[in-house]
Design a protein around this nucleic acid. Structure first.
Lengths: 187, 187
DNA sequence: AAAAGATCAGACAAACTTGTCTGACTATTT
DNA sequence: AAATAGTCAGACAAGTTTGTCTGATCTTTT
C-alpha cells in the first residue's frame, strides 16, 4: 500500500525533474509545477521548504536516474576498456532520450552564478561520482596511457563533459562520436 | 569627437556584458542594466528592440573579447603546438579574470532551452570560430596524432570545452591543468 | 473516538518582469 | 533656422514570481 505521502511527494519531484531539466530552473515556476503535478501549492510547501530545496531533490533524482541507466548499460561488462566506451554510448542514448538538454549539474550552475551552498554541494557530489566511475575503470586497465591512473581518468572525464555540453550546444551526437574516436586512440 | 550614440550604446552593451556574464541572463533585469549603465530605459529600447537583441550583442562582445585576448596571447608564436598550449593557458587566465563564469555561449544555451534563432546562431558562430582556430593550428602540425586533422582538432576542442565547464563547476583551475597534461601527451 | 498528519483550492502579499508611452530637453545635421 | 536624432526620468500596463495563509477535508495513527 502506497502512502499518500510518497505518492504526492513523488509526483512533485518527478514533475519538477521533468520541467527543470526541459525548461531550465529559472524559467520554471512553482505554479506550473503544482499544476502539472496535480497537487496543491500548500502540499508542495509542506514537503519542501523552498524552491531551492526542491532543486536539490531534482539534482539528486537526476543523479540517480543517470547512475541507474549507466549501471544497467554496463551490466556484466568486466573489461574496463569496454565499460568506458559503453559509458559514452550510454551518454549518447541519454542525451537523445532527454532532448539534448545536457548535464543538469552543469546547467544548474550555469543558471545560478550565486550558487547556494546546498545546490552547489549536490551538483559537485554528482559530478565527483562520475569522476570516480572513470577512476575505477582506469585502475582496472592493464596498461594506462600517460603518467598516472588519476591523470588518465581526468582526461576521460574532460572528454565526457566536453562531449556532453557540445551535444547540447549543437543538438547532435557528433561530439560523442568525436570523443569515442579520441578514446579509441588513447585506450 | 565621440558621438553620444556610441557612448550610450557602448555603455549599455558593456554593462549588459558584465551583468549577464556575472549574474546570468535570466537573473539580470533590464532595470538593473539601465541603472548601472546610467542611461534611461527609453535609450536602451532606442538602441535595442528587445532584451533578446541585447543578448545577441552581449554574445558578440564576449566573442570579440576572447578573440582579442587570445590573439594577443599567441602574438608572434609560430609553432602550432605552442599556440595550442598557449590557448589553454589563455583560457586559464580568462576564467580567473572573469570569476570562473565559464563559457558565455554554453551558459546562454543552458539558460534558454527554448533557444531563439538569433541567440542560437550567434552562440554557435562563436563556438565554430574556436573550433576553426584549433583546426588551423592542427593543420600546421608536422605530425598529427591519430587519424585526421579534423578529428584531432575536435579532440582538442572537447578538452577545451570540458576544461572550461569543469573550471566553472569546481571554481578552480585544475581542470585546465588536466587538459594541458592530456595535451602534452597527445602532441 | 480523538488526535495528528497530509492534502486540497485558492486568495493574497510584495516584489519583480519586459516593454510602451509621455513629454521634455539637447545635440547634431541640413 | 528648422528638422532630425538621441537622450532623459519616470509613470504605466499586464503579467509574472515565490511564498504565506485560511479553512476545509480526508486519512492514518493512537
Amino acid at each position: 500500500m502506497i502512502t499518500t505521502d510518497t505518492s504526492v511527494r513523488e509526483q512533485i519531484v518527478s514533475t519538477a525533474d521533468r520541467l527543470f531539466y526541459k525548461q531550465g530552473y529559472n524559467l520554471t515556476g512553482i505554479n506550473q509545477i503544482i499544476e502539472e503535478a496535480g497537487v496543491a501549492k500548500a502540499s508542495l510547501y509542506y514537503h519542501f521548504h523552498s524552491k531551492e530545496d526542491l532543486c536539490v531533490a531534482y539534482l539528486k533524482r537526476r543523479g540517480e536516474k543517470w547512475s541507474a541507466m549507466l549501471a544497467k548499460y554496463i551490466e556484466g561488462v568486466s573489461d574496463p576498456k569496454e565499460a568506458i566506451i559503453k559509458c559514452f554510448e550510454c551518454r549518447s542514448k541519454y542525451l537523445q532520450q532527454n532532448g539534448f538538454s545536457g548535464c543538469s549539474y552543469i546547467r544548474i550552475i550555469a543558471e545560478m552564478p550565486q550558487r547556494s551552498a546546498k545546490i552547489n554541494k549536490q551538483a559537485v557530489l554528482n559530478k565527483e561520482k562520475q569522476r570516480e566511475f572513470f577512476a575505477e575503470q582506469v585502475s582496472k586497465l592493464k596498461k594506462v596511457p600517460g603518467n598516472s591512473v588519476k591523470d588518465f581518468a581526468n582526461t576521460i572525464f574532460l572528454l565526457f563533459d566536453g562531449a556532453t555540453v557540445q551535444c547540447q550546444v549543437y543538438r547532435e551526437l557528433s561530439p560523442i562520436e568525436n570523443a569515442l574516436k579520441a578514446l579509441k586512440i588513447l585506450l
